[in-house]
Amino acid sequence: MTTHTKILIADDHPLFRQALLLMLESSFNNACLLEAETIPELEHKLANTTDVDLILLDLDIPGAQGFNTLSNIRELYPEIGVIVVSGFEEPDTIRKAMSLGAAGFIPKSTPVPEMIKAIEDVLQGKLWTPTDDHNKNTPEQQQAEKLATLTPQQHKILHMFADGLLNKQIAYELSLSESTIKSHASTIYLKLGVKSRTQAVILLNEQQLAQASLSPFHRH
């Protein structure tokens, strides 16, 4: 990967932003990562930072006014690639974003390896939009795919969440620091496309129920 790639994350959801930062830090060596929570902050960062390579823009960020921010960035900073990262996945939204000059569109439910591939493609000058294949899968298949991206350690932590253990209890059990558990939690939420511990546990339980209904001899 290009050294010292500058990526600006414009998203107002702290957990999602932290998870994106962790993902980018581990996947893009020497990347310079910047953050903005609001449109004024984004505009300030762009005005005061040189050589930004890529903006990851959430359409829902406060002050965005729909697609206006995307249009303005493309007009003022045509040399900067913009990937829209959004909770909206409708084909019309994707088409509109691309027609206004976005170099990519990543739904927030996209599995992490695909997110990394999308960012790599755009940094190499290609365009990226979600493939139809991912959307053709049933919800159960999509959930199974997301759970499959977790590392063994993350699986263990997710099951401990399901058992109702607190972060400090999990940290004690696994001989890790509480901040490490929080980092793992953020990555788990990102990989599963959820925003909270409760949603992550619900997804796990739904998947276990789906597996149990497929196999009467399924062992938990």
Rank of each mutant, 00 (worst) to 15 (best):
T3W: 02
T5N: 03
Q18V: 04
L21D: 09
L22H: 08
M23D: 05
E25R: 13
S27I: 04
N29T: 11
C32V: 11
E37D: 14
I39N: 06
A47L: 11
V52P: 04
D60Q: 15
A64V: 10
T69N: 07
I83S: 01
I83N: 04
V84L: 01
V84D: 03
V85I: 13
P91D: 09
R95L: 03
A97T: 06
A97H: 04
L100S: 00
P107D: 07
S109K: 12
P111I: 08
M115T: 05
M115A: 07
I116D: 03
I119N: 02
G125N: 13
T131N: 06
T131E: 04
T131D: 07
D133Y: 05
Q143P: 00
Q143W: 02
E145I: 11
A148R: 11
T149C: 12
T149N: 12
Q154C: 08
A162I: 04
D163K: 15
L165M: 15
L166W: 08
A171G: 02
L176Q: 08
L176G: 08
S177G: 15
E178W: 00
E178R: 11
Y189H: 14
K191T: 02
R197W: 06
R197Y: 09
A200K: 01
V201C: 07
L203I: 03
N205W: 08
P216M: 02
H220R: 10
